[in-house]
Every structure is written in C-alpha cells, then in structure tokens.
Simulated assay, not measured.
Amino acid sequence: MKYFVNTADRQVFAFEDDVEIVEREGVYSFTTADGVPLDSLPTMLVPCDPPPPYEPPPMDATTAVAQRDALLADATLRMGPLLDATPAEVVSLKAWRQYRVALNRIEQQAGFPASIDWPKAPV
C-alpha cells in the first residue's frame, strides 16, 4: 500500500501496490494495473506515511448506558420467541440470558466507561 496526501486539504489517499505511480517534475500520475489513468484525483498529492489506525474517542457513561440499553432491548426482542423454547432451543435461550446479565454488569468493569469489554451477542 502506498499513501499520498492532498496538500490542499490533508486528505490521505491509499493506493494498492499494483497502481503505477509516476513522478514528473513534482507532479504524480496514477495508473491502474490495466493502464487506466486515475484522472479524477487531486493534482497536489505528495507521498506520506500511513495514517495512524482509527481509535474511537472514549465513551462517556451516558453514551455507554444508552448503548447498553439498546443492546438489552434487542436481546429482549430476540428472547421473546424462545420463552416457549423447545428442548433444542433452551441452549439459545440460556445464552441470551447470560448475554443480558453480562450487559447489565458493564458498569462494574474497571475501565467503565472509557474502556468497555462489550459481551458478544449469541448467534
């Protein structure tokens, strides 16, 4: 992967290694492996380092609880049909119950609310 930044707006562009990049007098041109020029790109692109990986901002308690409540509501909807579970569905119902308990305990986690280990929903 090769990275270029637009000097006008600092937008970063990533190009696969099979894109041919030619520099002439400080201006770069880009061509696909099939020879098709990538003409719609900004003209002020210069090579740059890869951008750092995206890290979402830490969550505040209000947002975390709202997300938890939305996940609990979804779990409740999914559990509804399982309340009349057949013996084969009892395992699924138990997994959804354990998931709801884990969701209700997120506020007890050491990193709450900035760092939450969200439980995985059953499939």
Rank of each mutant, 00 (worst) to 15 (best):
E20P: 00
V90T: 13
P47N: 05
A114Y: 08
P113S: 11
D39T: 15
R68K: 11
T43S: 15
R100V: 00
E25V: 05
Y3H: 14
P53K: 06
L38W: 09
A121T: 10
I106V: 10
S29P: 12
V90F: 09
R97Y: 04
D9H: 07
T62Q: 11
V19A: 07
A70D: 07
A70W: 04
D74V: 13
A73C: 03
V90W: 03
D69H: 04
E23G: 03
I21N: 05
V91C: 00
L77G: 10
P57N: 06
E25I: 04
S40M: 09
R24K: 12
A33F: 03
D17H: 13
P122H: 03
W96Q: 01
I106F: 01
L72Y: 03
P53R: 11
L41M: 12
Q108G: 09
T86H: 06
P51E: 02
D9M: 10
T7M: 13
F4T: 05
T31K: 08
Y3P: 07
P50R: 11
Y54P: 11
M44N: 14
I116E: 00
V19W: 03
E16D: 15
D60F: 12
E107Q: 11
R100E: 07
R78K: 15
R78E: 14
A110K: 07
L45Y: 02
